[in-house]
């Protein structure tokens, strides 16, 4: 059963003005429970806007989005942003608890469990300012998993980190995901990252339309050094290059 269904979604900024611009156009896809879906595409193709619309932070112009929960109650969402977005005046543990709906013992235990999974148990009482950028982002990931979301949204969570830290966090994310099997929608402009992490890649093209929906059928855990992963990464990268060339030609013809 699909956790997320997006149907004919469109988004136009500055509707009804001379500055009106359509960033998403006729987007339709669904995401089944327990799958890891990446949305890739060049800068400005509407990836983050799509994620903000799914999370409810931003309104859409037309189309439908439906989200179902396993429990039958209102669906819960977790969000990992590009930057950690932690409250600087609250300790790591209090940041984890801030997004929880209750203060019960099982909730506290769940927060501790995910903090342990990202290797920050000892830093539970630290303020975010006392942690490195990579550690703060790990808290952001643990916080999102700890709400036990029906859908976890991740918006380029490793783009602000150095390559080595990002690689470590990707491996850690794969481990946590393998254990929790949450439904994830992951936005990135990095195809290599998308192939390493995802079951499926939705490619958006400039103008905000879906160009291609690619299934990644590779065993897990995946590592960049694995030749099959590297081959598939090269193939997807090639398809993306072809899309860019096609978009360039189309815009030249239109001009």
């Amino acid at each position: 059963m699909a956790v997320l269904t997006v149907k004919n979604l469109a988004k136009t900024f500055n509707v009804g003005t001379a500055k009106a611009s359509r960033v998403l156009d006729d987007i339709s896809f669904d995401v089944r429970g327990g799958t890891f879906v990446s949305i890739v595409g060049p800068s400005g193709c509407g990836k983050s806007t799509l994620l903000n619309i799914i999370s409810g932070v931003e309104e859409h112009t037309s189309g439908d989005i439906s989200l179902t929960s396993d429990s039958g109650g209102p669906a819960r969402m977790g969000y990992v942003f590009q930057d950690p977005r932690l409250l600087p005046w609250r300790s790591v543990m209090k940041n984890m608890m801030y997004v929880q709906n209750d203060r019960s013992e099982p909730t506290v235990a769940r927060c501790r469990k995910y903090l342990d999974m990202v290797g920050l148990t000892k830093n539970a009482d630290f303020f975010p300012g006392q942690l490195s950028g990579g550690m703060q982002q790990r808290v952001g990931i643990a916080r999102a998993f700890a709400v036990e979301p029906d859908l976890l949204l991740m918006d380029e969570p490793f783009s602000h980190l150095d390559a080595i830290t990002a690689r470590g966090l990707r491996a850690q994310l794969q481990d946590i995901w393998a254990q929790s099997k949450k439904t994830v929608v992951f936005v990135t402009h990095d195809v290599v990252e998308a192939v390493e992490l995802s079951d499926r890649i939705i490619v958006l093209q400039p103008g905000g339309r879906i160009y291609e929906d690619i299934t990644i059928d590779l065993p897990r855990p995946r590592r960049q050094t694995d030749p099959t992963v590297a081959t598939l990464q090269a193939e997807v990268l090639g398809r993306l290059e072809a899309m860019k060339a096609l978009s360039r030609t189309a815009s030249e013809v239109a001009a």
């Binding site: 999370s55 409810g56 932070v57 819960r76 969402m77 977790g78 969000y79 942003f81 930057d83 977005r85 409250l87 801030y98 997004v99 709906n101 709400v147 949204l153």
Partner: peptide, 11 residues
């Protein structure tokens, strides 16, 4: 950005 984060988590 902290307000957006809070809204995204349904605060």
């Amino acid at each position: 950005s902290l307000v957006t984060m809070s809204e995204a988590f349904g605060r």
